[in-house]
Design a protein around this nucleic acid. Structure first.
Lengths: 338, 338
DNA sequence: CCTTGGCACTCACCCGCGGCGAGTGCCAAC
DNA sequence: GTTGGCACTCGCCGCGGGTGAGTGCCAAGG
């Protein structure tokens, strides 16, 4: 439908608009890009592109700016992913290598991503459902009070208090701890419910109440805490948006504070490969003039969580995608090592 | 020095300016407040107040706005703390009561505070140094790999990986775990270094290396993680500032992202009682047009951490102080219960 | 049929101008 | 010390013309 040159014109428009933030006209285009045709021809092409909905003009007789649909086409067919340069890759690795624990990894990642892309970065903590159990620990805090600690292969730790229906001896505790670990250690969280199903029965009648309580707390933790946490950073970059601030920035800040919204946003992304949601493609209204570039990352071949970037629809897609992909890759490596 | 009426004039100026965001003139003042004197008199008072540096005019022949010094006087001598109404107090309690763990408490607190004050809220996680150890757990992940888990009385959990110089048997591990706990459980973090000082010597020669490593990691955790974490929220409220956005909001967002800055900010606040830092009183440059209202909170009589609000110097001080104080009080209660 | 140069037209943006009005400082009178 | 009067300042607002980038259309040429 669209000739090769028209696509080239679209690409040029996106490129220039991303750079200047100003509507781009036919004359300026021919000057900055060697299209080999005259402004008049470009005007015709622009008219066609506008007809199809890929570009629009803010006011009559002004330059054109890409529409969401235009960016979509650009991302899908016209732009590649711009790989990071070798020095950049080294810097990423160095920066992430210094992390001491999971919080630190996530914190560094979010700062790094924000700095590289000069946009708002969002990093989801490794999900519980998809990770595996490294260890389950039971501590006796008081005769009838236990603490359950759950440690994942990604280094995440969750804890819960448990009030026992009856006092629970040290022996029983050690027994339960051992049996629990032999069953679930190394297993995926999603498999745990089945694995502990019949554990209660094998205990003394006196202890069954407590064991049942412990198990239900464990399962509860798995379910409740599957509600993921995430960290965001680089919000100061929002000020680079436009100059028509309050209206633009406010809803975005509000959306960013609602973790539920962000989680849903990341959740909608396909599991593997990079996802780019442009403007109104984002369900949330406050984000209708932003794009979200996200990708899964994980310690193994499988993604355990996602990370991404939120920025204006007018963003450098190839560069952003490159940074997001590179960071995700290195975070995966770091997690695999720890 | 300043007559009672002049103070009253200052109070009226602060009140009106906070409400309208516009410089307030002598005539408008006499109309809105029953000062019992004419505009001319107020003008004389204003001239005196300006002479002393409590108010200033943005341009010649415009109304007056309070200076930092003016707000200082207002806060110190003219304004009380506006207590929360009973329904508000009930709402606070209800909202905080639903929290399930420490993260949730802090998260709810920050959202609550942001909503109540319509400003940016900052809540510091309960500090490690001032809290006590509830339990230290050692887990064997691999023959020469341990995980150290530290649990505080405020429900906070810290973990660290440890690579042992030599394999460490289950017996030794249990031994170390038991001795460690008997020494430090229930003790304050700041006392731990002394309490474990001579622990290494009492172990087999083979194990001393590992024990030393574990202890040093423990101490390291205490020191490093004394570097507190905090949570912020309500950044969208920054958009209510002025209309001269980018310049105002950007440095604030940047400052908010540097936890170090914020921690120092809260750290400077006096331990007990409420602290109000106004404008340039804040060391950080980006916050020179904001005020910080902060107060300590804790599970007992002693403060374990601080929370506060960051907003424009032009803020409702009595209301903000009331909200901050009330929230701190209830958070303290919640922590004491858990 | 596509491309191109020409041409008239549109319209956002910039700038300078004058009127308005809130606010001020000063002063003389009470 | 307070008050009313008065001249003055100056930021804000709306108006109007000039400018220029950009457009759509059209007729001519490959």
């Amino acid at each position: 439908m669209l000739s090769e040159r028209r696509l080239e014109v679209l690409r040029a428009i996106v490129h220039d608009y991303v750079g200047t933030e100003e509507p781009v006209g036919s004359k300026a285009l021919t000057e900055r890009h060697r299209l080999g045709v005259s402004p008049a021809t470009v005007r015709n092409d622009m008219a066609a592109l506008e007809e199809e909905g890929f570009i629009a003009q803010p006011h009559t007789s002004a330059g054109r700016i890409p529409t969401d649909k235009g960016y979509r086409l650009f991302v899908d067919r016209l732009a590649g992913v711009k790989p990071m340069t070798a020095p950049e890759r080294r810097a990423i690795q160095n920066f992430l290598d210094g992390a001491v624990d999971l919080d630190d990894v996530v914190g560094r990642t979010v700062r790094l991503l924000a700095q590289l892309t000069r946009q708002v970065a969002v990093v989801q903590y490794p999900s519980l459902t998809r990770s595996t159990v490294r260890h389950v620990e039971l501590l006796s805090l008081a005769p009838a009070r236990l603490m359950l600690v759950l440690i994942t292969d990604t280094g995440r730790v969750e804890q819960r208090m448990i009030d026992c229906p009856a006092p629970f001896g040290e022996m029983s505790l050690a027994d339960l701890r051992a049996r629990l670990n032999s069953r679930v250690a190394g297993r995926r969280f999603s498999d745990v419910p089945q694995l502990v199903q019949d554990l209660t029965e094998s205990f003394d009648k006196d202890d069954q109440g407590t064991v049942a309580t412990v198990l239900s707390t464990l399962l509860e933790t798995l379910v409740e805490e599957t509600e993921e946490r995430l960290m965001i950073g680089g919000t100061a970059n929002l000020t680079r948006f436009g100059h028509d601030f309050p209206l633009t920035i406010r809803p975005v800040l509000e959306a960013l504070e609602e973790q539920v919204v962000l989680l849903k946003l990341l959740g909608e992304a396909t599991d593997s490969g990079m996802t780019v949601k442009i403007g109104h493609e984002n369900a949330h209204e406050g984000l209708s003039s932003t794009s979200v570039v996200s990708v899964g990352y994980g310690s193994g071949s499988e993604a355990v969580a996602k990370l991404g970037v939120v920025g204006p629809t007018r963003m450098d897609y190839p560069g952003t995608m490159g940074a997001v992909r590179a960071v995700a890759r290195y975070v995966g490596q770091i997690l695999a090592e720890s």
